[in-house]
Design a protein around this nucleic acid. Structure first.
Lengths: 238, 238
DNA sequence: CAGTGGTCTAGACCACTTC
DNA sequence: AAGTGGTCTAGACCACTGT
């Protein structure tokens, strides 16, 4: 672990333990540098992390104030999450099951080619999975992935976590994702599998996920039951 | 302007101009350091910005690859936006009007006290505004703000931009915001003012906005017409 | 004014990738 | 082995805040 991440974690811990109470100020960067026996740049980097995560607000010439961390409850999924539902829910000790609605291979249409940077000759998987949490339907996921990147996708994997397979078995490194979130009306599949009523809204999250080498490898639309999922986000002035 | 921000902007410009084509690699950090006559740390900081904004993906021991930024033609993602609707829409040359549905002062209930860190004796504004873009209803905003932070709120201000008033007139500095996004069913006010049908979904964004000194100053729920607004977001592996 | 955080440097070592 | 990005240092200067 890096020094600055280690120190950031330690500072967070102190804040949570009220060793640095909300509303008070952190020791100055120079003091912290002496305490941890590192250069001030390293402390600065650590405090940057705390700032990005909303723990503190530094004001130049003044000090670094400990903020009151919002009490949005954690049962909502952070928007900046792309570990897949399985690991997300594991944190709350909930069972995730996947029911495969559709799984086949096809050539991409032009829209899919554009989104995944593919030629018309590179086949894709077309997957529709229903994700159940504690036996209740949560999400209907429409996923498209290029076959050549993920050679041996099986029913077995689809029943568990695609992401775990990608990262642990194939060693693919995810760089990030683009998402678009909107409210939509339910379609026939939603009615059938999410078990929602015609006037229930659906929260649709479209996302493209990228590998570190820049290759997009997943283009998906997840349709979430409106009473089961919401998304939280923290955004900060640059 | 800082050196690292200046350099980051310049690099972005080169990427957009295809001087560094998508799929190719940036010059190494040492080369860039010589070119701009700065230390490598400064280049590193600049490239960090590009990484956070999804322009490039550095891989240690290898190089920094220029990514394809898909339908991301505009500079800022609406999700990490807290400048208010007025400035957001101004970029697209659209008219924003505000119709005041409700504007009064009251003592906060316990929920409001908690969210805004107030006592029962500190009054708040309760504001409901309908935001119209090019004469069409887009958003119904329910906003709560402490009176003592924003002393002289007038109809005049509410008809334009609250945010512009806060920042330009009062000099309040916004640190960031927490948001929660979900799909909901329309309520009576939505039907009346957003002009939506009973089975139209509504995209609800609840947010708390914080000042740099840590004081929360706005707690709001905006209810967006589902066919008019969606939210985009870029998220990256740490 | 003294103290704070923000930036920047010149150089160093390390982890990693490709050859 | 050579080259890359990631981290870290010791010190410096600056912009800003409080008094």
């Amino acid at each position: 672990m890096n020094k600055y991440e280690t120190i950031a974690d330690l500072l967070k811990q102190r804040i949570r333990q009220n060793l640095y109470p909300v509303g008070s100020f952190l020791p100055s960067q120079s003091e912290l540098a002496s305490e941890f026996d590192v250069s001030r740049m390293t402390i600065n980097k650590a405090i940057n992390i705390l700032t990005m995560e909303g723990f503190v607000s530094p004001q130049r010439g003044f000090g670094t104030k400990i903020l009151n961390r919002p009490f949005w409850n954690n049962d909502v999924s952070p928007v900046d999450q792309y570990n897949g539902l399985t690991s997300e829910m594991a944190r709350y000790h909930r069972d995730v099951e996947s029911k495969i609605i559709n799984f086949d291979v096809a050539f991409p249409d032009s829209d899919e080619q554009a989104h995944l940077s593919l030629t018309a000759q590179q086949p894709i998987y077309r997957i529709i999975r229903l994700r159940l949490v504690n036996k209740e339907p949560y999400i209907l996921e429409h996923t498209i992935m290029p076959v050549d990147l993920i050679p041996n996708l099986t029913d077995e994997i689809l029943h568990h976590s695609i992401y775990a397979y990608l990262q642990d078995e194939l060693g693919l490194q995810i760089a990030g994702a683009y998402r678009n979130i909107q409210a939509v009306k339910p379609d026939a599949l939603d009615l059938q599998y999410l078990n929602c009523k015609p006037d229930d809204p659906v929260l649709e999250v479209a996302q493209m996920v990228y590998l570190k080498n820049g290759q997009p490898f997943e283009y998906s639309h997840s349709r979430n039951r409106y009473d089961k999922r919401s998304f939280t986000e923290l955004s900060l002035r640059k």
